[in-house]
Design a protein around this nucleic acid. Structure first.
Length: 860
DNA sequence: GGCAGTGAATTTTTT
DNA sequence: ATTCACTGCC
């Protein structure tokens, strides 16, 4: 194969780092044995030292998974078993890859520079693909399409097929194609029944033509990076053999999250290289059949296509087992909905005969009660490999379960508990709120803003998915490759140039007729009088601009060129003129984009990797509460974890239950397990009896998962957010008082009443405490919760603030006026866009639109 | 071609 | 409730 591109994110070429390996070896020897092995427990050590043959490490939450992986690499290197370039080490996210590199660097010093094959599935597969692109009908500089491009392309195809994209949305097709790719299916391999469900039987055809279009555009989507790589290996045994020979050791992180395509890819690479390249029997069928029989219901579609026929070899017969080590936790498989196959990990021993399975069950993270709760909960799942987490830590505080009247009270209660923790000296950085669905976050944000409590949302739209970033990238893409039609189309009228659908349609026709890219078509069309003078003029100007930029590219550094392009195209100006709230933020993002380009040598190198490596970077040194979904919390840990929204329908999610049945429920339960195991010292669960879903109030039932917790490790507490309503004995968690067994608490009278209540039924005073006012600013509730017992203990004085709120909220209008320029301590400068009593909606320059109480802002 | 008004949808998320 | 996308009108 060709030498990896110089601009690859893996900085050093294969051969160079050997010195590092030797250095590490020498270091290990010099220190009289393997220093890096010290401090590992026996199981961990076993996982590190069992180098030969397939190994499955079942690493429960908090058992030192990453440590094992990195130490294992160090061990391989220091034993001289392989050079850095001979170890393939795959993760799912860039973040995980980065962390491994960092930790390896700590362990080995500079040697980490030499781990060229440590990266995500996609980046590594993409890199291999670029080296042999021509074998899969691509050029080595192919573009990686993001979801947006994908949808746009599919829309065109749907149009061409005259399919009503109302009835058959492009999004849906994109989802289907993605699913097929996740399962390793080329267009011809999609079961015809499945392909027919879309667009009156045209699904399969559309998939095929989509793939054709991608080739014409010299593009690949994310799924292709793996799928085409698999095809490359299958169709070119000699190429496959190169890689099989190269990789002496394979390590896989988060194996429970692998999908079929990733599994197939690993299988191909993990086969011992064979001289003939095709001597492998297809005995996999048996394992498939077996797993289908005892597998969960309704998953016949999930059988492994492509496993049949010649494609995948099974080391069952004779070939010596490859040294593959997969690390994962079946209890943390939470990505089934996007194609992950828990089956991969459940069947590991079957797939890799002779595999050694090592369980890491000693948890170094959580206290006894938390671990007990998490472990007990997860035992309700069937179909697991079974681990029993244990800790030598203290029992610690019990897991608390708190009921709240509604989601506002829940947010209020959590807000107060956080302030209390803060008073006890906890750092906000050690506190996280983990929600099931992102819409739950808003309520917390609102609450924290009024409290002035710093928080940080983790997750959300990724940097490179933002419109302005994609627009900017599109400009650069067109400069880099004039044939990038999708990019051209994206920016042809951004900023507005008077080149609308009509013009674009015209260009399309022209381009198709002559089989030339859109840009070429544009160049040709401006020479004709097919367009109205106005459109023709701006199109000509655009073409000329691009040609000028391309010429400048030779003599101008790429970062500078990017600035010139954004400037001259009027793109920057477009946002500068934009009066909307987030315009300033977008301009910042563009600056950030240009800054990030500096790491790359030139435009080409930047574009080649940007779609794969770019992610949001947190400039997060400030002490703040973390707010995120359970999914994005995987892999993280916090001293104090709040888990709101444990209600039927929300968690477990009704939709998952409907769509995936029991498998879905089990995945939700694993999600609950993940949530609990994020906590080191305190885990606090909440449920609300009423929750607003899509604008309407709905009465909910506490999650069945609450019933599945071990009573001995759980404590029912009162909601601090609303205990004040109606005084003592008011509605609320007090109904749990004196309830011995947690599981039975739902049969208490108060509880039954709550259940009997109809959604939306007005029932104000029956419990003597239902709010008359929903607003958190209504005079009573801040006193209720706040003055209850904590008065005066606050360092920052949130109670005083509440007092202010109360005082000011009584009808007096705000002293601010619309359009006033204001300043807020956390959000910076902004403009008042809406006034509601003392509640202001402010469009902050940086932070976007937020609702804030007027006492928090001052005139700017 | 641009804008305003209406209508439908609405978990989870990486690459 | 809110957002986002699309239609119909200027």
């Amino acid at each position: 194969m060709t030498e990896p591109n110089r601009l690859s994110p893996f900085p050093a070429p294969d051969h160079q780092p050997v010195a590092g390996g030797i250095a590490a070896r020498a270091r290990a020897a010099a220190s009289g044995g393997a220093r890096y092995l010290a401090g590992l427990n026996p199981e961990q050590r076993d996982a590190v030292e069992t180098l030969d043959g397939p190994v499955l490490v079942l690493a429960g939450a908090g058992t030192g998974k990453t440590r094992v992986l990195t130490t294992r690499i160090a061990h391989i290197l220091s034993q001289g078993r392989a050079r850095p370039g001979e170890i393939l080490s795959v993760t799912f996210t860039n973040k995980a890859a980065r962390e491994m590199k960092t930790r390896l660097a700590e362990m080995l010093g500079q040697a980490v520079e030499g781990m060229p094959w440590l990266g995500t599935f996609h980046s590594i597969a993409g890199r291999i693909l670029r080296s042999h692109a021509e074998l899969v009908q691509l050029k080595s500089n192919f573009t990686v399409l993001d979801t947006d491009d994908q949808i746009r392309l599919l829309k065109q195809l749907l149009q061409a097929e005259n399919i009503d994209d109302k009835r058959w949305p492009a999004r849906m097709l994109a989802g289907l194609i993605d699913g097929w790719k996740n399962r390793g299916l080329m267009p011809s391999q999609v079961p015809s029944g499945e392909a027919a469900v879309f667009g009156n039987g045209k699904g399969g055809k559309l998939y095929a033509s989509y793939q054709e279009r991608l080739k014409i555009l010299n593009a690949a989507d994310f799924g292709d990076l793996l799928l085409e790589c698999i095809r490359l290996f299958r169709e070119n045994p000699d190429v496959l053999r190169q890689y099989q020979n190269r990789f002496k050791f394979i390590l896989v992180d988060e194996y429970q999250d692998t999908n079929v395509a990733q599994y197939l890819w690993l299988r191909l690479l993990s086969q011992a290289p064979s001289s003939s390249g095709s001597s492998l029997p297809g005995s996999t069928r048996q394992s498939i059949a077996a797993s289908d029989e005892d597998g969960s219901p309704g998953h016949d579609a999930a059988r492994r296509p492509g496993d049949d026929e010649k494609s995948v070899a099974v080391p069952g017969a004779t070939p010596p087992p490859k040294n593959i080590c997969c690390v994962g936790d079946d209890d943390q498989s939470i990505y089934g909905w996007r194609g992950a196959e828990v089956d991969n990990i459940l069947r590991f021993e079957h797939d890799f005969p002779g595999a050694k399975v090592i369980r890491l069950e000693r948890n170094y993270r959580s206290t006894g009660h938390i671990l007990a709760a998490a472990s007990h909960l997860i035992t309700h799942n069937e179909g697991r490999l079974g681990k029993t987490l244990r800790t030598e830590d203290v029992e610690g505080e019990k897991v608390t379960v708190t009921g709240a009247w509604d989601s506002e009270e829940e947010a209020r209660g959590i807000g107060e508990e956080i302030e209390e923790l803060q008073r006890k000296g906890e750092h906000l950085n050690d506190i996280a709120i983990l929600v099931r669905a992102s819409y739950q976050m808003r309520e917390f944000e609102d609450r924290f803003v009024t409290l002035g409590l710093p928080y940080r949302v983790i997750g959300g739209p990724r940097f490179y998915e933002r419109a302005e970033i994609r627009d900017a990238l599109a400009y650069l893409r067109v400069i880099n490759s004039p044939a990038d039609d999708l990019a051209f189309e994206r920016i042809v009228n951004v900023p507005k140039r008077g080149l609308g659908d009509a013009t674009v349609q015209m260009l399309h026709d022209h381009a198709r007729k002559r089989r030339i890219p859109l840009f070429e078509a544009a160049r040709a069309v401006v020479e004709t009088d097919e367009l109205k003078p106005k459109a023709r003029g701006s199109l000509r100007q655009l073409v000329l601009q691009f040609e000028r930029w391309r010429a400048q590219r030779e003599v101008t550094p790429h970062t500078e060129l990017a600035e010139i392009v954004l400037d001259e195209s009027g793109y920057t100006e477009m946002w500068q003129k934009d009066r909307s709230a987030d315009a300033a933020g977008r301009l910042d993002n563009l600056k950030e984009l240009i800054r990030s380009m500096e790491e790359f040598e030139n435009l080409h190198g930047f574009l080649e990797h940007i779609s794969l490596v770019m992610d949001r970077e947190g400039a997060a040194d400030e002490d703040a509460v973390s707010l995120m979904t359970l999914h994005s919390a995987k892999g993280l840990e916090f001293d104090n974890v709040f888990l709101p929204g444990w209600e039927e329908g929300l968690f477990p999610s009704q939709r998952t239950l409907d769509e995936q049945g029991r498998a879905g429920l089990e995945e939700e339960r694993r999600l609950a397990h993940v949530g609990l195991t994020r906590a080191r010292r305190r885990a606090k669960l909440y449920f609300a009896t009423n929750r607003r879903i899509h604008g309407t109030w709905t009465t909910t039932i506490p999650s069945r998962f609450l019933d599945e917790l071990p009573a001995g490790s759980v404590e029912i507490t009162e909601s601090k957010g609303g205990s004040g309503w109606g005084g003592a004995g008011g509605y609320g968690p007090s109904r749990f008082d004196n309830v011995e067994s947690f599981g039975s608490s739902y049969s208490t009278p108060g509880w039954q009443r709550a259940q009997a209540r109809r959604p939306g039924a007005a029932r104000g005073a029956t419990e003597g405490g239902f709010k008359e006012e929903q607003s958190p600013f209504s005079g009573r509730d801040p006193f209720g919760g706040g003055f209850g017992g904590n008065f005066g203990r606050s360092k920052r004085g949130p109670l005083t603030i509440e007092g202010e709120l109360v005082a000011k909220s009584t009808g007096t209008t705000s002293e601010f006026a619309l359009d006033d320029r204001v300043f807020h301590q956390k959000f910076g400068y902004g403009r008042v866009v809406k006034i509601d009593g003392n509640k202001l909606t402010i469009a902050f320059d940086k932070a976007g639109e937020k609702k804030v109480v007027d006492s928090f802002v001052e005139r700017a």
